[in-house]
Design a binder for these strands. Structure first.
Lengths: 106, 106
DNA sequence: ACAACATTTCAATAATTGTTGAATAATCAT
DNA sequence: ATGATTATTCAACAATTATTGAAATGTTGT
């Protein structure tokens, strides 16, 4: 996972609405939900949900599959695992640091 | 960590510039860097850096301390650990799900 | 073929975020 | 005190993102 791939993921999680969508899809993994059910459960207009889903699709954090006249969305859990690994490595404990001889913060 | 606290953290990581700032500060943890050094290393105007640092401060992901005429910024690594725990719990494997009898994706 | 349905795309607008230069505040050295 | 230094805040503007209703696309059932 490179930073230029990670930033869009954070961007796609940076709205409360999208974070809610993603958490909902994780709760319903691995089956996912169709758009109408998401809209109903989160009580947001279909057209606005569609906008947010597009952002999530673009970052890769959710995936989509047409199913008759429904569109089914699922969380991409493996990508989330990569993001967690990225954060652990780059933004937390795993990164190399200046050799000052001091102890690390974790 | 609650969702309403997590969203601002993702928002503060959602710009490439801020993600760079945070990663830099992690590399220089636990000492951190003064604003001028950040600006120099990342080659962004001081006034713009100041704007991004304010966002990071607001989410709690960085902390600030005045040091003479310098302002020193440090990464809040413990908060990042909480975020990683939040993602693991809410957005990945730890969350409760509908009982469908199917196996979990992780 | 037709009507009902699920969802998206489009266009318009509102709201927020990002960027910059100039002005300001605080500190340090002389 | 004065001038140089560090960094912020302010104001203006540019750019992006969010929200909504109406129209369009494709699907299903009759």
């Amino acid at each position: 996972m490179k930073t230029e791939n990670a930033a869009p993921v954070f961007e796609s999680l940076s709205s409360g609405a999208r974070l809610d969508v993603f958490r909902l899809l994780v709760r319903y993994a691995p089956d996912g939900l169709v758009a109408g059910d998401i809209a109903k459960k989160l009580d947001i207009p279909a057209t606005n949900l569609s906008f947010h889903l597009k952002t999530l699709l673009h970052s890769g954090l959710v995936e989509m599959e047409k199913e008759g006249r429904f569109w089914r969305y699922r969380a991409n859990v493996p990508l989330m695992l990569e993001i967690i690994a990225y954060l652990t490595d780059q933004c937390c404990c795993g990164s190399s640091r200046k050799k000052t001889g001091k102890t690390r913060s974790c």
